[in-house]
Simulated assay, not measured.
Amino acid sequence: MGAGEIQERLGVSRTRAYQLVARRDFPEPYAELQMGKIWLASDVEDWIRVNRPHLADDAP
């Protein structure tokens, strides 16, 4: 999952997505490719469940 997918998943601006992925509590990227950093979707979803529970897939 790249920054663009994280942006879409959270419903935030591109700038806000980059602010979030720079936070200390955001998961470390799985890899850094020429096009940018990528994260495991499961790591991002775990972070969402803790930090944005209203956006979690299993939110009521």
Rank of each mutant, 00 (worst) to 15 (best):
L10Y: 01
G36N: 07
L40D: 09
I48P: 01
E32H: 03
V12S: 07
F26Y: 06
R23C: 03
R9Y: 00
R16A: 13
L33W: 01
S13F: 01
D43Y: 04
E5W: 03
E5M: 09
A59T: 04
D46N: 10
G11K: 05
A41Y: 04
D58R: 01
D46W: 03
D58G: 10
K37W: 02
P53L: 02
K37E: 07
T15L: 10
I6Q: 00
V50T: 09
D57W: 06
G2N: 14
L33A: 08
Q7M: 15
Y18V: 00
N51M: 13
W39R: 00
L40A: 14
Q19P: 09
G2H: 02
R24S: 15
Y30H: 14
L55H: 05
E45C: 07
A56G: 02
R52C: 10
G36K: 01
A3N: 09
G2A: 11
P27V: 06
V50E: 11
R24W: 03
R49T: 05
L33I: 05
R24N: 14
T15Q: 14
L40I: 09
A59W: 04
K37T: 03
R14Q: 10
N51I: 09
A22Q: 12
A56H: 03
M1L: 15
P53Q: 06
G36F: 05
V50I: 15
P53S: 08
R9H: 05
M1E: 00
G36D: 08
P53W: 01
A3P: 12
K37L: 08
E28H: 10
G36E: 07
H54G: 14
G4A: 14
Q34L: 15
P53N: 09
Q34F: 10
R24K: 13
Q34A: 15
H54P: 09
L55W: 05
M1N: 02
D25V: 04
G2F: 08
M1T: 10
E28N: 12
D25F: 06
R16V: 15
W47C: 05
E5C: 10
E45F: 08
D57L: 14
Q19N: 10
R16D: 04
D25H: 03
I48F: 00
Y18F: 13
R49Y: 02
A31S: 13
R49F: 06
G2E: 11
R52V: 15
Y18R: 11
R24I: 07
H54E: 15
N51W: 04
A56S: 13
W39C: 08
E28G: 07
V50Y: 02
P60K: 02
A3R: 11
A59S: 14
N51A: 07
A3W: 01
T15V: 14
D43I: 04
S42L: 07
N51V: 12
R23A: 11
Q7E: 15
T15W: 06
R52Y: 09
Y30P: 05
L55Q: 11
Q19K: 12
W47K: 02
M1V: 11
Q7N: 05
I6P: 00
D57M: 11
V50G: 03
W39Y: 02
G36M: 03
L55N: 06
K37H: 07
